[in-house]
Structure formats: structure tokens, C-alpha cells
Design a protein around this nucleic acid. Structure first.
Lengths: 137, 137
DNA sequence: ATAAACCCTACTTTTTTGGTAGGGTAAAGA
DNA sequence: TCTTTACCCTACCAAAAAAGTAGGGTTTAT
């Protein structure tokens, strides 16, 4: 029931980019230093985020990464979804048939409802909200 | 982010007992057969549930286990809490100080809110509700 | 007594997580 | 054009957690 470091570090990274979304491309090395995670690990995390079009990159000297949408157009739920490979408390949530007892399973609906609760909560939080919240302090 | 088999099997077991809560002590072997989990594994799961007073046991011949409260007095959240060792999406949720960056962490409040969402959902579901729901079908 | 059933400790295996290593490729700027 | 900078890609590895087994001990109803 714990979130993986992929989601946690990935969210930190996205927030870092969100805070600098008007400063042009940002190098991974820079982000790595600030969020305190190795460049190599962040490289791994940014690939699926690029594939899902939340991030775009520029190669070459002076290249780097940046958000592909405004911070208020990206939710934490979307990030977790990409990095965690779906937000599901159990394998049977989206796919009842993976379980041989799915015909008369009393519990699946519980896990479905709980999954929905977490999903809705995370999808209601945008990167912009988190940054703004910080500015007020 | 996946629920462990401990929570899932444990919930199945508690539901099984709830469905038979007026039939006296129920043997683990019987439950194991119905919920399709080894007796040895269920033995492991029932210990913390007994310690937390959700279950009571009778030793000896014709002994067995039974719920220590009415099914509408036990929530799924309580079961998961016991078997999972707390419902927390990250280690820092209840204990900010485990993280050296907790001073200026933008993300902790996200994980706290999401944890709260799942916690409240699971705590709103009693064993009785799940069984009743089944009876209607 | 003894059999049925729970109780307890330890160990093992498998899977997932959390990375590291090392080289390849693209492109901006001199 | 050439070189540097930074992203891109494929493996691999180690530690930890999850999942489950093994085997013996203890209690108690009959």
C-alpha cells in the first residue's frame, strides 16, 4: 500500500519543472541536485512522462526538459498513473477476470471503491495548486 | 500501491466469519477451504486480528474462531489497518521527521490527503454492509 | 488419554523495488 | 564541421518486502 519512489521522486521532479516553467529547458542534472535523486534514476522516470506527453525535451548543448502543458493542466493523479503503471489497489480492479473467484467475489467492489477514492483525490490536485500553496507561505 | 495479500485474504476470512457469526466457533481449516488460502497462511493473519480484539478463539476439540464484535461494528479499514500495519501511502505521512527534506517538502500534504481519502472510504464500509449487499442479490 | 484445534518460531522462495553501469545518439554552438 | 553537452537506450544487479512453508508445541473437550 506504499507509493513507490518512482511516483514520489517523479512528482518532485514535475514540481521542480513546474516552478520553472517559463525559464526554458532545464537540465536533468540540475533537477537531480535539487530533488536529491540520481540523474540516472530520473532519466528512467522521465521517459514514460515524455511518452505520455506531459514533458518535452530538447537535445543538444543547452538542451533540457520542460513541461508540455501548463502546471494547472497536469494533475498529480496523472503523474502517479504514468509512473505507477495505473492506480489500482488490486489487479482485479480494472480486470475482474484475472481472478478465478470473480464470479462470487464479495470484496472486489470494496477495492474498486477505495481505488476510486484515491484516484479522484489525486486527480483533483494540479501542480499549479501545490506551487501556489507554497507561494502563500 | 497494491494492497498485499494479507489485507485481501484477511478481509475474505473476516467476511467468511461474519457470514457465520451465529454458528459458534469456526475452524480455520474450513475457512481456508472456502476462501482458498492455506491454513498456515491464515494462521499468520489471524494472530494480529486477535490481538486487536476483532476475533476471539476457542482452543481444543470443537474449537475455532469467531468475530468478537457484530459485523456492523467492524470496518474494512480496521482490518486493513491491522494487517497492513497502518494505512499510509508514504512513511512520512504520520511521521514527517523520517524525511530529511520535511522542512520544505511540497509533496507530503498530497500524500496525506490521498491517504485520508482511502482511509475514510475503507472505514465507511462495514462487514455487515458487504454481506447484506450480497443477500439482496 | 487423546485427538482436534489453535499457537509459535524459524526459514525459504519469489517478486518487486530501487537503483547502477555503460555506452549510443542527436543537436547546438563555436 | 567538429566538439561538447545532454538526452536516449539496454542490460544488469542487489536489497528488501511479500508470500508462503515447515515443523513442532500447547491447550482443552470429549
Amino acid at each position: 500500500m506504499k507509493l513507490s519512489t518512482r511516483s514520489r521522486y517523479g512528482t518532485r521532479m514535475m514540481l521542480d519543472m513546474a516552478q520553472r516553467c517559463n525559464e526554458g529547458p532545464i537540465q536533468l542534472g540540475e533537477i537531480a541536485r535539487r530533488v536529491d535523486v540520481s540523474v540516472k534514476y530520473l532519466e528512467q522516470l522521465i521517459i514514460p512522462l515524455k511518452k505520455a506527453d506531459y514533458v518535452k525535451s530538447l537535445r543538444g548543448a543547452k538542451g533540457g526538459h520542460m513541461l508540455n502543458r501548463a502546471p494547472d493542466e497536469i494533475t498529480v493523479g496523472e503523474i502517479v498513473d504514468v509512473l505507477e503503471g495505473g492506480i489500482n489497489l488490486t489487479d482485479c480492479v480494472g480486470n475482474p477476470e484475472v481472478c478465478e473467484k470473480h464470479e462470487d467475489c464479495l470484496t472486489r467492489s470494496i477495492w474498486e471503491e477505495a481505488t476510486k477514492a484515491i484516484y479522484e483525490k489525486l486527480n483533483s490536485i494540479t501542480l499549479a495548486q501545490i506551487i501556489d500553496c507554497d507561494k502563500k507561505v
